[in-house]
């Protein structure tokens, strides 16, 4: 039976049919590990993140890494051509990936990436928004909710101030950005369901 890995964190969606499930999993893990490490390095640079307890740092990263990656890799999704670029550098059309078994998650990710890109944020704004995505006090397993909440509020204030300064005539941008947070949660939930299904099979 042909199998495909439609996550762009792979080098290619095509899976060698000779490889065992374990080997496929190992290869997949090898592909996304550097990206996850980059997320951890990014988190370490968020002022105040390293002051949180280590279990809370782990909980935030465990819960938020996917969402951070969605924001960071939004450019892999080209909504004009309706293509997705895999880490191996090759582009695949959304229709091709759908035929390979990609679920509604793919369409949702393309839609999200389009809306985020259309906001035209600078690198600095995107970076601060990513920090807000990661530092969310309502993630499961947080021990010291007050500390995470305090850091989250500081980051949100900084983001609002930066957006207001850079886009004085576009006050809706900040609101639109905050509304992206529940969208990311929803994508994260869909992705978790996919992962469970993938592991089970």
């Amino acid at each position: 039976r042909r199998r495909h890995l439609v996550c762009p964190m792979n080098t290619s969606p095509h899976v060698d049919p000779q490889k065992s499930g374990h080997e496929v999993w190992e290869e997949f893990s090898h592909s996304f590990t550097p990206a996850v490490r980059e997320v951890v390095e990014f988190a370490k640079k968020i002022p105040g993140f390293r002051d949180l307890s280590q279990p809370d740092q782990v909980s935030l990263l465990k819960a938020g890494t996917f969402e951070v990656l969605v924001v960071r890799f939004a450019s892999l999704f080209d909504m004009k051509d309706r293509t997705v670029t895999f880490l191996g550098g090759k582009k695949y059309s959304v229709d091709t990936l759908r035929a390979m078994g990609a679920s509604d998650l793919l369409n949702s990710m393309v839609d999200f990436s389009e809306k985020l890109t259309n906001l035209g944020l600078s690198e600095e704004e995107m970076s601060l928004f990513t920090a807000v995505v990661l530092v969310s006090a309502d993630r499961s397993g947080i021990e010291n909710v007050n500390s995470v909440e305090a850091l989250q509020e500081t980051l949100i204030r900084a983001l609002r101030s930066l957006i207001t300064k850079n886009h004085p005539n576009e006050s809706a941008i900040f609101t639109k950005l905050l509304l992206k947070l529940p969208d990311l949660r929803s994508l994260n939930n869909m992705h978790s369901e996919q992962l469970l299904a993938f592991k089970v099979h």
């Binding site: 996850v36 490490r37 280590q54 089970v200």
Partner: peptide, 27 residues
């Protein structure tokens, strides 16, 4: 199969990446 992040080995990668920094701090 209750925790996709753990299944993916994500927690292990995160802990190692965070710990690396702790070791640097101790140095």
């Amino acid at each position: 199969f209750g925790d996709p992040a753990s299944n993916l080995g994500l927690e292990d990668i995160i802990r190692k990446a965070l710990m690396g920094n702790l070791e640097e701090r101790q140095d």
